[in-house]
Design a protein around this nucleic acid. Structure first.
Length: 168
DNA sequence: GCCAACGTTGGC
DNA sequence: GCCAACGTTGGC
């Protein structure tokens, strides 16, 4: 494993760029956002239990032309109750959820940088080393996905990524 | 816009 | 607990 990913694991987070793009994260205060509104139990479990500060994030643009990995971010705060579930005006409001027993979780994510080269889905499909990626599995829809270190190295290399956290 | 794949809901 | 119906995701 490279030093780049030594400190933590790597995740792929999907977002529709028309709803929230990597560029919007880049321009956000502190380049940070609360990653919430996820209403799938498998993804919820990952947000709540697995994503940890320092973990790397591949920011994937879905339902887009083309779809693909647009940028790199990092987790800066691990799972905490997703505030949107308590907000009656939020589309992700969940009336069945209570503060004492929250059902949904969010993490905070900070942009590290756009990939010098956008990595389209099609290019990832063509890469033998990425054949096992959750993203590329038939019917895969999970919006929070684990990425292996080897897969991350390939995607980051395709994108021309140099980790600013490691640069002299 | 189409539709395959998947997750959730709710009747029984 | 089963499973049909329905809603959503997301590539094309």
């Amino acid at each position: 494993m490279s030093a780049r990913t030594r400190a933590g694991r790597v995740w792929l987070l999907k977002s529709e760029p028309e709803v929230f793009s990597f560029d919007e994260l880049w321009r956000a205060p502190k380049r940070t956002t609360s990653w919430g509104g996820v209403r799938n139990y498998q993804a919820r479990n990952l947000l709540r239990d697995e994503l940890s500060p320092g973990d790397l994030v591949l920011f994937y643009h879905s339902s887009s032309t083309p779809s693909g990995v647009a940028g790199v971010a990092e987790v800066v705060r691990g799972g905490y109750p997703d505030p949107t579930q308590f907000d009656a005006r939020d589309p992700a409001h969940d009336p069945a959820s209570t503060v004492d027993e929250p059902r949904w979780y969010a993490v905070d994510v900070r942009a590290l940088g756009a990939l010098p080269r956008f990595v389209p889905l099609e290019a990832m499909r063509a890469e033998r080393g990425l054949a096992g990626m959750v993203l590329l599995q038939r019917g895969s829809r999970l919006s929070v996905q684990p990425v292996t270190p080897a897969e991350a190295r390939i995607v980051l290399s395709m994108g021309g990524w140099k980790d600013p956290r490691r640069s002299p």
